[in-house]
Amino acid sequence: MRLSAKIKVALAITVGLVVTTAVDANAAPSFQRYVALGDSYTAGPLIPWQQASWCFRSNNNYPSWLATHLGLYSKPGGFTDVSCSSADTTNMTQSQTTPSTDIPLTSQPPQFEALRLDTDLITIGIGGNDFSVFGSLISTCPEVRSSDPAGHPCQDHYTINGIDTVKAAIKQTQLNLENVIKGARTRSPAAKIVIVGYPRLVPPSGYCPDVVPFADGDYAWTDSVARALNDAQATAARRQNATFVDAYAASLGHDACTGSAAWVSGQSTNLFRAVAYHPYQQGMEGVANLVYRALGGRTPATVAPLARDAATKAQLEQMADIVPKTLNH
Rank of each mutant, 00 (worst) to 15 (best):
residue 121 L to S: 10
residue 115 L to T: 02
residue 115 L to E: 00
residue 136 S to N: 11
residue 162 G to T: 00
residue 137 L to E: 06
residue 126 I to P: 00
residue 120 D to A: 09
residue 123 T to V: 10
residue 83 S to H: 06
residue 144 V to W: 03
residue 155 Q to H: 14
residue 155 Q to A: 14
residue 127 G to C: 02
residue 96 Q to V: 06
residue 158 Y to L: 00
residue 145 R to G: 07
residue 146 S to F: 09
residue 100 S to Q: 06
residue 147 S to I: 08
residue 111 Q to H: 12
residue 147 S to K: 11
residue 154 C to M: 09
residue 134 F to G: 04
residue 126 I to Y: 01
residue 148 D to R: 02
residue 83 S to A: 15
residue 106 T to Q: 12
residue 126 I to D: 04
residue 160 I to M: 07
residue 143 E to K: 14
residue 98 T to P: 00
residue 137 L to D: 05
residue 162 G to H: 00
residue 87 A to G: 13
residue 137 L to Q: 08
residue 93 T to I: 11
residue 152 H to R: 14
residue 124 I to R: 00
residue 114 A to Y: 02
residue 135 G to K: 13
residue 112 F to V: 04
residue 96 Q to I: 04
residue 81 D to S: 07
residue 132 S to Q: 14
residue 133 V to L: 11
residue 99 P to W: 02
residue 91 N to S: 09
residue 117 L to D: 15
residue 156 D to E: 15
residue 92 M to C: 03
residue 140 T to R: 10
residue 151 G to C: 07
residue 101 T to C: 12
residue 100 S to L: 08
residue 116 R to L: 14
residue 132 S to K: 12
residue 112 F to N: 14
residue 146 S to P: 02
residue 85 S to F: 00
residue 116 R to D: 12
residue 102 D to M: 11
residue 151 G to W: 05
residue 95 S to G: 12
residue 151 G to P: 03
residue 119 T to H: 02
residue 117 L to E: 15
residue 150 A to I: 02
residue 151 G to T: 08
residue 136 S to F: 04
residue 108 Q to D: 02
residue 80 T to Y: 06
residue 120 D to F: 06
residue 162 G to R: 00
residue 144 V to T: 07
residue 93 T to C: 05
residue 82 V to N: 05
residue 140 T to C: 13
residue 109 P to N: 09
residue 152 H to Q: 13
residue 137 L to T: 04
residue 150 A to F: 07
residue 154 C to W: 09
residue 156 D to W: 00
residue 77 G to A: 13
residue 144 V to P: 01
residue 110 P to S: 12
residue 113 E to Q: 15
residue 109 P to M: 08
residue 141 C to R: 11
residue 102 D to S: 14
residue 155 Q to S: 13
